[in-house]
Amino acid sequence: MQIKLTINDKAVKWDVANDELLADTLRSHGLLSVKKACDTSCCGLCTIWIDGKSMLSCSILSVRVHGKKITTIEGLPQEAEEFARILSAEGAEQCGFCSPGFIMSVLAMKNELVNPTEEEIIHYLTGNLCRCTGYMGQLRAIKTYLGVA
């Protein structure tokens, strides 16, 4: 069926199959920052925003986002780059495969939580797995980004 939605501030009409997952639809339309690393909604690599809220695009059927506003990292060049610079200055984008989804979660967290504690940060981001970095460098980058010690 055809769905109408907004992708990174652009109105589009897409034909999608009834059983198509949003992550696959986005990739097939060239939004290749969207990565998938599991089949069980466990890894967080496919994180995007739907109407400004971070969501797992592997766990949503494309037909369900008709009329919604979708944001991927491609749609947030400045904000995402600001944090990506801090992340890579820390060396905490090792293979980088988890980074786009992680960055989308971090930016969503920044919008949602005011002055989060370390515990709140860790809790908010638990669903974003990373096998390379051991998470400490990501935490250092977030603290620099949020300006907390």
Binding site: L32, I73, A80, E81, G91, G96, S99, P100
Partner: peptide, 21 residues
Amino acid sequence: QSIRKIDGMAIAMGKPVYTED
């Protein structure tokens, strides 16, 4: 020196640089 990785920004920003991409 703690030099930033030369591919760091591209991979962090999700640029199409992996096999499937």
